[in-house]
Design a protein around this nucleic acid. Sequence first.
DNA 1: TCTTAGATGCTCT
DNA 2: GAGCATCTAAGAT
Length: 211
Amino acid sequence: MYEKIPRTFFQQPTLKVAASLVGKLLVIQGDMEKIVGKIVEVEAYKGPDDRAAHTYGGRRTTRNEAMFGEAGHAYVYIIYGIHHCINCVTVGPDYPEGVLLRAVEPLEGLETMAQNRFQQPYESLTNQQRLQLTNGPGKLSQAFGITKHAYNGHDLQSDTLFIADSDRHTHPVLTSPRIGIDSSGEAKHYPWRFYEKNQIYVSKAPKPNDE
DNA sequence: TCTTAGATGCTCT
DNA sequence: GAGCATCTAAGAT
């Protein structure tokens, strides 16, 4: 039904993987239900060379251990104590780069997402809430039920969590500086955020790549 | 519609 | 003990 993306896809340069991931599908196959979303926004983190990355300078800790694994695995961590974020490990092994999934467009499993996010049936959500199901790293993780405990180091070639190809129409992909890393010095200027043009599910209103 | 502050807990120093 | 790749609610405009 869904074509899993081969591991070789993730072994390409990180910036290329990031740009190509926009428009792909994030699929979770739970016990009861499948959850699918189209990736509309990502950020590239180029490990050793990137001050904003957890693996800057080759820093290796228990938290970012998954980043040092083979390409095509998931790196899930908790941020601000509450929110989970999910990355796809690229290049590797032993080269800690990755792509952060920032936003998706909900396609399947809307009921499950609505329950996970708002403890309400999708039917009774306001339009605002529907837009906010998955338009941010913490939100999409909550909607998909992604937790560090369950998915950190998870193989994206598995049947329960993977990235799939899509023939859906996609808008042009734009770039901009990344978000939420103001304390990372010069690295914050790098245009390593990729998002789909005119996509209402992107986490922040599209901003020209001007800086 | 935009801006601000508080929540919350894991990870690293 | 401080900081964090965020989100939400509340208050200002």
